[in-house]
């Protein structure tokens, strides 16, 4: 039993160190990506297309729904306490700083994280990675780095769109339920919005992008030879990405408010 525990710890530590080394390699290759103008640029564009553009609709619907819910609840509940202005602060905190980046990350994990993990796992099972290596193409530089950069860029852009749809698009939704004056809403919202809020959301999106893409790539490369491991890689990528994103969100939030 002790031997099995020891073996498990060694295995975990080995995997963790491998993951750290993999992450270091991804960072190193990512820094060289724009200088070398590799063909991976096309992969980057497609990654942004798949991760960012195609997720925009879901992202927008979710943002408007959450924003509308906050406006309706806030405009009904907060005036009873004489704190109507808090509605805009709550909207900024929820949409821009907290839920916006996190929900965007969840959407991307569900859509693109699994896609990256299963795609890379399929390439591993199909010996495509070995083929790249055999012809002198670094699989990390060609396959992982465009996906990481594309994922980070997509999350950052989706976060901007989430804010716009959540803060402004929700206003249009609310007009159908409970009309409020646009000028007052817009001015109060801009007064409540601070550059730090936008930077905080952007920072979270960047961190989440790095986490999701790295975890998905790592899990994709981490499978053995069996095709049955491909879905397992996708599941692991999703689970680990969720946990790490939430953990990172807590750390960043604590760093902001501490």
């Amino acid at each position: 039993m002790i031997e099995s525990i020891g073996a498990s710890v060694r295995d975990k530590a080995s995997r963790f160190l491998y993951a750290l080394a993999f992450f270091g390699r991804v960072v190193d290759r990512s820094l060289r990506f724009f200088r070398r103008r590799q063909v991976g640029y096309k992969v980057l564009v497609f990654q942004i297309l798949f991760t960012g553009v195609e997720a925009l609709l879901v992202n927008a619907v979710m943002a408007m729904a959450i924003g509308a819910a906050i406006i309706v609840i806030g405009s009904s509940l907060l005036p009873q306490f004489g704190q109507s202005r808090l509605m805009y602060d709550i909207m900024v905190i929820v949409i821009t700083k907290e839920l916006g980046p996190l929900l965007t990350a969840f959407i991307v994990i569900a859509r693109s994280g699994t896609a990256i993990a299963t795609e890379l796992a399929g390439m591993v099972v199909g010996h495509e990675i070995e083929a790249y290596i055999s012809v002198g193409v670094d699989p990390v530089s060609f396959l992982v780095v465009p996906r990481v950069i594309g994922m980070v860029a997509s999350l950052a852009l989706l976060s901007i769109y989430f804010n716009l749809f959540g803060l402004l698009g929700s206003f249009l939704v609310v007009q159908l339920i409970k009309p409020i004056a646009f000028a007052e809403y817009f001015q109060s919202l801009l007064a409540a919005l601070a550059p730090g809020d936008i930077l905080s959301g952007m920072a979270k999106s960047l961190v989440f992008g790095v986490i999701i893409s790295t975890v998905a790539s790592y899990q994709g490369f981490a499978i053995g030879r069996a095709s049955t491991e491909i879905p397992v890689a996708g599941i692991k990528a999703v689970g680990q990405s969720f946990v790490l994103c939430i953990f990172a969100d807590v750390l960043i939030t604590l760093a902001q408010y501490a």
Partner: peptide
């Protein structure tokens, strides 16, 4: 048209972000 779509997607996001920041600065 992946390049164009991604370009529009990216550019529009930046323009909107800059616009919001300008409006925020004017308002604040």
């Amino acid at each position: 048209h992946a390049d164009r779509i991604v370009g529009v997607f990216t550019l529009l996001a930046f323009v909107l972000l800059v616009g919001v920041i300008i409006l925020m600065g004017a308002n604040q």
